[in-house]
């Protein structure tokens, strides 16, 4: 794979609105992650909104089918009791032919999966317990 190939892949992935892309080949793995665009400030007056509670678990970053194991390795992405850092990929959502990583919302210890394997989940659905 050349640098040009990577640029082409990156552009295609950006056009498709992907947040990240992982490509495994015999000679290695390519991981691309895209910085999220900053959403525009909401129009209208600002009213007091309760501060979001500290999530009790690991929320889904969007819609997808929750996978207990990585489809290519068959192994769980994380195991209960594992210490993780904020932003670390702790799970996967299947979105059509692709995968969407689930980041840990904070530093902590991952618990059990609370959603069935391959269940359809939406933004914010709690996928794992977390201490």
């Amino acid at each position: 794979m050349t640098l040009d190939d990577i640029v082409r892949l990156a552009l295609a992935a950006e056009r498709a609105g992907l947040e990240s892309l992982e490509l495994s080949q015999a000679n290695g793995v390519l991981r691309l992650r895209f910085a999220a665009a900053r959403p525009p400030a909401p129009a209208g007056p600002v009213v007091a909104v309760a501060a979001p509670k500290r999530p009790k678990g690991v929320p889904a970053p969007g819609v997808g089918r929750f996978l207990h194991c990585h489809p290519s390795t068959g192994q769980p992405v994380t195991t209960p009791g594992q210490r993780v850092e904020a932003g670390q990929i702790v799970g996967l959502l299947e979105i059509g032919p692709g995968l969407r990583p689930v980041p840990a919302p904070r530093d902590g210890i991952i618990g059990m999966a609370v959603v069935a394997d391959r269940a359809l989940v939406g933004y914010g659905t709690i996928l794992y317990e977390m201490d």
Binding site: P39, P40, P42, G62, V63, L120, G122, Y123, G124, T125
Partner: peptide, 10 residues
Amino acid sequence: ICIGPASSSA
């Protein structure tokens, strides 16, 4: 199904 946070853009 929930598709994102409050902000319309998301």
